[in-house]
Amino acid sequence: MTDTPAPGTKPRAKRWPYLVPLVAVLALGGVFAKRLSDISGGYDPKVIPTVLLNTPAPEFNLPPLPGLGEGLTSADIKGKVSLINVWGSWCVACTVEHPFLMEIAKTGEIPIYGIAWRDTPERSLAWLEKYGNPFTKIGQDPHSQTIINLGVTAAPESFLIDKEGIIRYKVSGIITREMWRDTIQPLIAQLNK
């Protein structure tokens, strides 16, 4: 086969641009290979690190929703037994859980801190406007940075934190009245001692 261009007809084409796709693909292949070897080595990408009970909550510093004061930092949750609730305006179950959080907030027995997860400030605010705001303080975590450290897999999720900032209990899903009465309230009483 003859595929060399006739000499002198055009300047010799640069070769390196044609190598770019190959190099990019090889680099990507390397990443995949490492990933696969991680997985064969026992790494499970499906398991998001679960925060063990009785360990300190991770450090965080979340910006506020505009117009609702300061944000939420890990310093805020120390000194008093509190509940952290992860929610989003997109989360249907949160809407179901919400009236009960409002009830708890009215009794004032425990401060509830909200983390607005994967949401825009406008939507979060509109949601609070519509359903009411049970939260003492709210921080927003649109990119899941703190959420992942907390080991949250879905919303709503709530954490009961003691005075030292240690996670004492975790509820994945909706907090029900029974759960609150039978498990969480006694736990709060005990932690307040």
């Binding site: 595929d3 060399t4 084409a13 070769r15 796709p21 190959l22 693909v25 290979a33 696969l36 064969s40």
Partner: peptide
């Protein structure tokens, strides 16, 4: 992961091979 490794090799051969050929032959094609 065994399947993953197999497909990755398949991918490397198919894509890597064709792009190598491309890097060799394409400069003369314009």
């Amino acid at each position: 992961p065994t399947r993953g490794v197999f497909i990755l090799i398949l991918l490397a051969v198919a894509i890597g091979g064709s792009l190598t050929l491309y890097a060799i032959r394409a400069p003369q094609m314009e």
